[in-house]
């Protein structure tokens, strides 16, 4: 079946079997291997992507179901080639990664969190990433990274979304 997806702002098409997950489609048909394959049944969160801006599991959606949606993967987070987003930078600075396998999912989950809630409490950060497993158990630094990114974004000389 033909599917048309908008991936990181670019319109792409693929011809896929209905049983192919969006995750496999992103990795195999489009070479976007930043979305990681973990448990393949929705438990670990390593494959988290943004679907119309919302974090979801790419292993629990078939590519044919995503037809027409806007998709953001980790490859679409940085402002320009060779640069990092504020959140990615904060992960580096606080050592918010060890093996790095969960990192793309964590970064995308954090990206959506800080967009909707620019100054989250520690509890809100923990709740937001509760569906993303870090098998190295480096949660302390991951939470720290998201808090640091929130602080930096609050002081950034960039337009901010008004608080509700």
């Amino acid at each position: 079946m033909k599917v048309q997806l908008s991936i990181n702002g670019e319109r792409r098409t693929a011809d896929v079997e209905p049983r192919k997950t969006l995750l496999d489609c992103l990795r195999e048909d489009f070479g976007l291997t930043g979305s990681h394959t973990g448990c393949e049944h929705g438990v670990c969160g390593a494959c988290t992507i943004l679907l119309d801006g919302e974090p979801v599991r790419a292993c629990l959606i078939f590519a044919v179901q995503a037809d027409g949606y806007e998709i953001t993967t980790i490859e679409g987070v940085a402002p320009a080639p060779g640069e990092l987003s504020v959140i990615q930078d904060a992960f580096c600075e606080t050592h918010g990664m060890q093996c790095g396998y969960c990192t793309p999912g964590m970064v995308l989950t954090a990206t959506a969190l800080l967009r909707d809630n620019p100054q989250p409490t520690r509890k809100e950060i923990v709740e937001a990433i509760s569906g993303n497993i870090c098998r190295c158990t480096g949660y302390g630094q991951i939470v720290e990274a998201i808090a640091l990114a929130a602080e930096r974004l609050a002081h950034a000389n960039a337009p901010q979304r008004a608080k509700p």
Partner: peptide
Amino acid sequence: IGHPATRRR
């Protein structure tokens, strides 16, 4: 019920 990411779908 699940996690925020599963409740969205």
